[in-house]
């Protein structure tokens, strides 16, 4: 039951830790709200949820949520989440990660979890920069954007994370921005309902570093930029690459059904098990 005057999301939060450490207008808070909304829409039991994160501003989110959570090392949340899911396949496991956490230091873990199609839901908050450490360029920083490590503008081609995860084998992949909170909530719902690896890329605002360095001082300006630059995937698919420079392609990138990793492993254990104990336990402790 909602308490009078309280946000509908307050019931999921550790109130004694609020307000969050996030800067005013940071997109992390919107990602958090849409996560709860998507979770409700998918009718996920909050008591059954485990949240995992790495290091970064975005990775602070699980610490505010009143459920079991793990705050792990930089780039490794998906690996920890894989362990949790394999040991406790009955739990709903979700990961909060930044673009640096998921795609730079954690890039390998991301593609291999997608390849395995393990049933976890990754919410990647892509603010195109390293927020926590002071505005360094990340693998998703757009060409020409400024950061403390790119005073003349980023020279490299950025990763399109949703395309990357689709190619790697993720079975539900969608990208929206914090300026599309309803579509984003719906994508998170679908991510939860997908029995396999789900990747929701949230293009988000870091007004403090990305905004300040790229002539968008306020979170309002940043949200307007995201809204105006967004183009639906099915429309973008018919356009040339040159026409899409500077655009944010939003929508569903992948939605398909495939056998899931924990299911495959459980089945294998069942088939191989003659003693009632899993095979690994037999060989390690019984000398066979």
């Amino acid at each position: 039951m909602d308490k009078a005057g309280e946000s509908p999301f307050m019931k999921y939060l550790r109130k004694d830790r609020l307000p969050t450490i996030f800067c005013a207008g940071c997109g992390n808070g919107i990602a958090m709200n849409t996560f709860f909304k998507g979770m409700e829409m998918a009718e996920i039991d909050f008591e059954n949820l485990i949240l995992v994160s790495g290091i970064g501003c975005s990775s602070r989110i699980p610490g505010y949520v009143e459920c079991d959570s793990l705050h792990t090392t930089h780039g490794r949340p998906i690996s920890f989440a894989t362990g949790i899911k394999l040991a406790n396949p009955q739990h709903d496991v979700a990961v909060f990660s930044g673009d640096g956490d998921a795609a730079a230091i954690g890039g390998n873990h991301l593609i291999h979890a997608a390849r395995r199609n393990i049933n976890i839901t990754v919410i990647c908050i892509n603010n195109s920069i390293y927020g926590m450490t002071g505005g360094q360029i990340s693998p998703t920083s757009p060409r020409g954007s400024y950061g403390t490590t790119a005073p003349y503008g980023a020279l490299e081609r950025p990763f399109s994370l949703s395309d990357l995860v689709t190619a790697a084998g993720g079975t539900y992949v969608a990208r929206w921005t914090t300026a599309h909170p309803l579509q984003l909530s719906n994508a998170i719902k679908k991510g939860f309902l997908n029995k396999g690896f789900s990747f929701i890329e949230v293009i988000s605002q870091c007004p403090t570093y990305y905004g300040r360095k790229n002539r968008m001082k306020s979170p309002i300006e940043m949200l307007k930029w995201m809204k105006e630059s967004s183009i639906l995937k099915r429309k973008a698919d018919k356009m040339e690459e040159s026409e899409l420079e500077g655009k944010i392609i939003v929508g569903e990138f992948q939605k398909k059904e495939e056998l899931e990793f924990t299911d495959k492993l459980c089945k294998l254990l069942e088939e191989q098990c003659v003693t009632g104990k899993p095979a690994a336990v037999r060989s390690a402790y019984q000398g066979d």
């Binding site: 009078a4 997109g27 909170p181």
Partner: peptide, 28 residues
């Protein structure tokens, strides 16, 4: 901090967008 005030409350259609977008869970 300058706190916004819902001065035109009678115009509200209760879509819930503001509560979903408020990054600090301040709105009900």
């Amino acid at each position: 901090v300058h706190v916004p005030v819902p001065v035109n409350e009678e115009k509200c259609k209760k879509c819930g967008l503001c509560a979903l977008m408020c990054p600090d869970q301040a709105i009900k």
